Computed example of a mutant assay.
Amino acid sequence: MRISVPGIPQAILNAKPALSVKSVSEATQRLSYFLGYGNVAVLTGAGVSVDSGIRAYRGDDGRYMNPNYKPIFYHELMDSSEKGHAYRQRYWLRSYLGYPPVRDAQPNPTHFALAALQYTSHIGHIITQNVDGLHHKALQQSATTNWNPSSLKEDILELHGTLHHVHCSRGHVVDRGVFQDRLSAANPTWQLYAEELERTGTQPRTNPDGDVAIEHLGISYSDFVVPECAECLLEEHRNSVLKPEVIFFGESIPKAVKEESFAQIEKCDQLLVMGTTLATYSAFRLLKHALELKKPVMLLNVGPTRADGLPGVEKIDVPSGTVMRDVVKEILGSRAIEDQIISRMLQMGVVNPPSLTDNDRYPRAAG
C-alpha cells in the first residue's frame, strides 16, 4: 500500500505569487464586506491556531516541509501484529509527551472573533481541519450568566476529528484525559520525565497533531507500555489497539462527517477559507464544491495554497490575527461595544505564536 503526505502541487509553488490583497486595511474592508451579508460557512486550518502556540503543518516552518518527516499511517497504527505494536509504542510515547501543550492551549483573537460572528449569525457553520478543539473552547470561555453557547457548538464540524477522545479497534471511546492518566500509570518513569519537561519548560517541539519529535534525543520507544482498553477487558477481551479520534493518513473520513461537510457548503451563501493551504483533498473538495455551486469564495491565508489561481477565489494574503477583531468591529459597528457579550469576546484571546527560530525544515532525525 502506497500512501503519500498530501502537499501543494509543485507547479503552484514554482509559479509567480497569486494576485492577492496584502494590505491590512484593505483586507479588513474586503472581509467585512464579504462577511457582512451573513450565512457564511467558514473552513479553517492550522494557520488559525498559530497564535495559540500551535504550529502549522506547512508554511515556512511547517512539519511537512521537513524532508525527513515520516508519519505513521492508519494501517500501520491499527496493525494487530508485533510490528503494529511497535508503531503504537512510537505514536503513543510521542503523543503522551506532546499532548499537554495542545490540551493547555488557549483560543486566540481569531477564535473569539469567529465565535462573535457565530453569536451574531453572520457565520452559520465552522468546518475545521484542526484537531485542537480551540473553536469549541472559545465558545465555552465566552459563556456568561446571560448566554449559553451550547447550541453554537453544534455548528462546528471537526472534519479531521479531535485529539481529545481516544477509541479502540472495537469502538469503545474514552476521554483523552482519562487515557493520558492510564498512560502515566503504565509508564511511571515516562511520567516523571513528562513532569520534568513541564516543570523546566523544556517541552520538545509539539506538532499540530499533538506529538513530538524525540528521536534526536536518543530515546527508545521499546519500553513504553500502551495500556489495554479497559472497556474491552470488562468484556473479557484483551485489546491494546487504540488511536485518538483523529483522521490519519490513509484513513477515510466517516461518511456522516463527509456528508455533513458538503451539506454545510450547500446551505451557506458564501464560503470563507482561513489559515489553510488546502493541501488535503478533504478540504480542497469543499472549496471546489462551493465553486461548482457558484458561491463566492474568499481565501485568507499567508503564502501559496492549492487554490491559487482558481477562477472565483478571491485571496487575501495576511494573517487572520491581524484583521479579524477589526473585521468584527467594522461589521457590527456600535453593537461591538454595546453588546457586553461581543465586547467581552473582542477582548479575549492569547497571542503566543511559536518561536520563529524553531524551523522544522532543517534536517533532523526522521519523525
Rank of each mutant, 00 (worst) to 15 (best):
T202P: 09
A186W: 09
R90Q: 11
A366E: 10
P107S: 01
P188N: 04
H135Q: 11
V327G: 03
R103T: 02
R170L: 12
L157P: 04
S343R: 14
S20E: 15
R170F: 09
P227E: 03
D358T: 05
P353V: 12
L159E: 04
H165I: 09
S95F: 14
G7L: 07
S142I: 02
L271M: 02
T120P: 01
P101F: 01
G321A: 06
R344H: 15
R103K: 09
E76M: 14
R325S: 12
L157K: 04
D175H: 13
V328C: 06
L310Q: 08
P244W: 15
D211L: 07
D317E: 15
P109W: 09
S142W: 04
N146L: 08
D155S: 09
G98D: 03
E196P: 00
V42W: 11
L217E: 12
W190V: 04
K294D: 11
I3H: 12
L286T: 04
E266M: 04
L134F: 08
G349V: 07
V131C: 10
H167Y: 10
E82N: 07
S23Q: 10
D339T: 02
K288C: 03
P109G: 04
Y96M: 04
N148F: 04
L332F: 03
E76K: 14
T110Y: 12
Y69A: 08
D209M: 10
L159P: 00
L19H: 08
T280H: 09
A366K: 11
L13F: 08
V48T: 10
L272M: 05
P188M: 03
R238F: 15
F248Y: 13
V40M: 00
E158P: 01
N359L: 08
H85N: 09
G47A: 01
D211F: 04
P244N: 13
G7H: 11
M298N: 00
E236C: 14
G53T: 05
E26M: 09
G275M: 06
H75D: 15
P254V: 00
V350N: 10
L242F: 02
A18R: 09
I341Q: 12
E245Y: 12
H135W: 05
H75L: 07
S95A: 11
G218K: 06
F179W: 15
G59L: 00
P311M: 01
Y119P: 01
Y37N: 00
I54M: 06
G312V: 03
D132W: 07
V313N: 03
E251M: 11
S240K: 13
I337V: 15
V50N: 03
K329Q: 11
I341W: 07
L35P: 07
R325I: 14
L346N: 13
T202G: 08
